[in-house]
Amino acid sequence: MRTGDVLPPLTLAITRTLIVAGAIASRDYQDVHHDPELARRKGSPDIFMNILTTNGLVGRYLTDHFGPTAVLRKLSIRLGAPNYPGDTMVLTGTIEQLDGDTATVRVIGTNGIGAHVTGTAVLTLGGER
């Protein structure tokens, strides 16, 4: 593993079920994450994914790649284009820095509208990889 290495992408179908299940699993009952009619009244074309789900998916992407012994230390994300039902998000990552067993990874999640999430993670890598 080297600085500049690119992680294999993870493609996720942004289904209505994923958006609602993620919102409820993260205990986020804001209507814009489950009620299309109320979302529209607030100026959104449909329900959209909450930030906690996006955060969790970025975490999953990293540990899927680095394995169960990798420990996430920091994760900073910024949201851009919303994840609406019917879209597809592709998560990609680049190793920005390696310092001993500490990796800094830049993550981007792109959907049909643009960059849904941009973020930086710091992980301590386990012994197995």
């Binding site: 409820i24 970025v58 975490g59 999953r60 540990t63 899927d64 169960p68 996430l72």
Partner: peptide
């Protein structure tokens, strides 16, 4: 919900997903 199958989050020594 998130499709996260990391074994660290289940079993007797489970931790919660940090996120």
């Amino acid at each position: 919900a998130l499709g996260d199958t990391n074994p660290a989050y289940s079993g007797p020594d489970a931790i919660a997903p940090p996120t």
